[in-house]
């Protein structure tokens, strides 16, 4: 099987979030970058497992600048076969999706996998958009994926429950918790990643339809009002009379 996994660069989950350039751009100084958790823990690991069982290859694809290369190397160390980076500044979800779709069409991938969402952009949009660009079926929020021949059996989260689904032929999906367990790269993986191919390709021309005017940090919470532990009725009173919430 021939699998394509979309991985993006994300700030470490404990990063301090700050902005620069008149608050138009995320301030990357001092920030540790990781592979977006949904892409690494779930989409990538499940793809590697499937290829371990059935043979084939796992290619990662990333839209980003050279600063993405360390996280791409990590994906190779975990077990991806090779990697592609489309050299462009990711600006909006449809641009990223179109770039990936333009690259992937005609390449004969069996499954294109992404994560549920990026932890910086939080759009949950790119995989669905890739599917539309390529006119492929799309399954969101997959928690279980089994293959037999060219038929996939999936379990996926949806509003209010889970769906059991099946798809024949090429499809796109987003992965979430449950589909696989996180893998820590070992020394051999890290060594072999150095010699694996990371191909940098030029971006095709695509339009950008949104732009960020400004980023803002949420207002700080006022001081927490502490209520006496022996008198929870007081909490009920403030929730009712001050916060007017119950």
């Amino acid at each position: 099987m021939k699998l394509l996994v979309c991985i993006s660069k994300a700030p470490d989950t404990t990063s301090r979030i700050a902005f620069t350039d008149g608050d138009k751009r995320f301030d990357e100084s001092g920030v540790q970058f990781i592979v977006n958790p949904y892409d690494e823990w779930y989409a990538l690991v499940r793809a590697i497992e499937l290829v371990e069982q059935n043979g084939g290859s796992v290619t990662t694809i990333t839209v980003g600048e050279a600063s993405c290369d360390p996280i791409v190397r990590k994906a190779l160390a975990i077990g991806a076969t090779d990697a592609v980076r489309i050299d462009a500044i990711p600006t909006d979800s449809s641009q990223v999706a179109r770039l990936i779709a333009n690259y992937a069409k005609d390449q004969g991938y069996d499954i294109i996998l992404g994560g549920k969402e990026t932890i910086d952009n939080n759009s949950s949009a790119v995989p669905a958009m890739i599917a539309e660009c390529l006119d492929l079926p799309y399954v969101a929020l997959v928690t279980k994926l089994e293959m037999s021949g060219d038929e996939a059996t999936l379990t996926a989260e949806t509003t209010g429950g889970t769906n059991n689904l099946s798809v024949k032929g090429t499809f796109v999906m987003s992965a979430t918790k449950g589909i696989a367990e996180q893998r820590i790269p070992n020394m051999r993986g890290i060594m072999s990643a150095r010699t694996k191919q990371l191909q940098v390709v030029e971006a095709s021309a695509v339009e950008i339809s949104t732009q960020v005017d400004v980023f803002k940090l949420p207002p700080l919470k006022g001081d927490c009002v502490i209520v006496d532990a022996d008198n929870p009725a007081e909490l009920v009173r403030v929730l009712r009379e001050e916060a007017k919430i119950i």
Binding site: S93, S94, A125, M129, S209, T210
Partner: peptide, 24 residues
């Protein structure tokens, strides 16, 4: 709605209609 159902359809519609997309 930006719930699981909406998030699986809306981005597709944005591409199909060449429309800008606002998630969430």
């Amino acid at each position: 709605s930006g719930n699981s159902i909406g998030n699986s359809i809306a981005p597709r519609v944005a591409i199909a209609m060449n429309a800008g997309y606002v998630a969430g």
